[in-house]
């Protein structure tokens, strides 16, 4: 570092040798990797690597690997934990869809808290990918819904409960809005964000009809012992401040054949998740045998998220 400061001087022989020392310093910093904290807790090489990191879809496998290692070092710096950052691609012949039986949803919000834990959501910022609205029976007007219901017990008489999260639209207006392609739809239908490419303009939040996108107004804080170490590059890896994030159907789980955390946590079995292309899947059964509807279907965004009721 001190060599770097000297090197900014004049043009004489002395400073030329200082510049050599500076370059050598960079090489050494690289070798020492996370051992020498500088540049906001990172090595100079990592800081440069972060700055010039390419768009996820443009990186070679080697570059993705290098990016993952930087992400791991960053997590080590920030939280003192060793995270696993997976890069599992979408499986062929899979497009995910979701359905909720609102007759079964009792408003416990177990899905919300499971999601917060699973996806490493900022605890201080209280970001939640799922919002459950307490609605008056007899109306679907969202403006009458209670976002912060807190009665002694749920369900309340005369109310029903409507969980809302990212609908993974098939024609997503948020993707259209992004000026730098930092968000896109994966082949399995999940709309993801490259947190290292997002410039934080928040135009996607403006475009989303479901209020599914959330911004990191500050550096998200999570107690180290509560961090989920099993992460995905396009999913629940720790996010920096100043970028947008959203529900990604638990890509770190679902691409390995597991259920999303919200479905696993639901005590009433109201949630049905699966492969829309598999005719034998439960989600297909629901779509074919129940009377389903989608929220704000008239906006033409083709949500892959349905609601239905018993009876």
């Amino acid at each position: 570092m001190s060599a770097g400061k000297k090197a900014t001087g004049g043009n004489d022989v002395k400073s030329r040798s200082a510049r050599r020392a500076f370059l050598k310093g960079i090489a050494m910093a690289g070798a020492a990797a996370a051992a020498t904290p500088a540049w906001g807790g990172r090595t100079f090489q990592d800081a440069m690597g972060d700055f010039f990191q390419k768009h996820y879809l443009r990186m070679s496998p080697d570059e993705v690997q290098a990016a993952i290692e930087r992400i791991q070092r960053r997590a080590q710096d920030r939280f003192g934990v060793d995270i696993n950052v997976k890069n599992t691609p979408a499986q062929a012949g899979v497009v995910f869809g979701y359905a909720i039986n609102i007759s079964k949803c009792k408003g416990y919000r177990d899905c919300v808290s499971a999601c917060v834990k699973e996806n490493n959501l900022g605890r201080d910022s209280q970001v939640q990918y799922i919002r459950v609205l307490e609605m008056d029976q007899g109306t679907m007007n969202l403006e009458n819904g209670d976002h912060y219901y807190a009665p002694e017990t749920v369900p309340q008489e005369g109310k029903f409960y409507l969980p809302v999260q990212c609908m993974q639209c098939d024609d997503p207006p948020c993707v259209k809005a992004c000026p730098v392609n930092a968000t896109w739809m994966e082949p399995d239908g999940i709309v993801v964000v490259d947190y290292d490419w997002c410039i934080g303009c928040r135009y996607c939040m403006t475009a989303c009809p479901y209020w599914a996108r959330h911004f990191n107004w500050s550096e998200p804080e999570i107690p180290a012992e509560e961090i989920n170490l099993d992460t995905h590059y396009l999913g629940n890896r720790p996010r920096p401040k100043g970028v947008v994030e959203k529900c990604h159907f638990c890509v770190q789980r679902t691409r390995e054949g597991r259920q999303p955390a919200c479905m696993e946590a639901c005590p009433t079995g109201a949630r049905v998740f699966g492969n829309l292309l598999d005719p034998d899947s439960e989600i297909r059964y629901v779509l074919e045998n129940k009377t389903v509807f989608r929220l704000k279907e008239d906006l033409g965004t083709e949500p892959k998220f349905w609601y239905y009721t018993d009876g």
């Binding site: 700055f51 768009h55 000026p179 730098v180 930092a182 490419w197 997002c198 410039i199 934080g200 303009c201 928040r202 911004f215 990191n216 401040k241 100043g242 970028v243 947008v244």
Partner: peptide, 12 residues
């Protein structure tokens, strides 16, 4: 100045 990540402006 409204951007969350102004240093990434080169992404444009």
């Amino acid at each position: 100045i409204d951007l969350g990540r102004p240093e990434r402006l080169w992404h444009m």
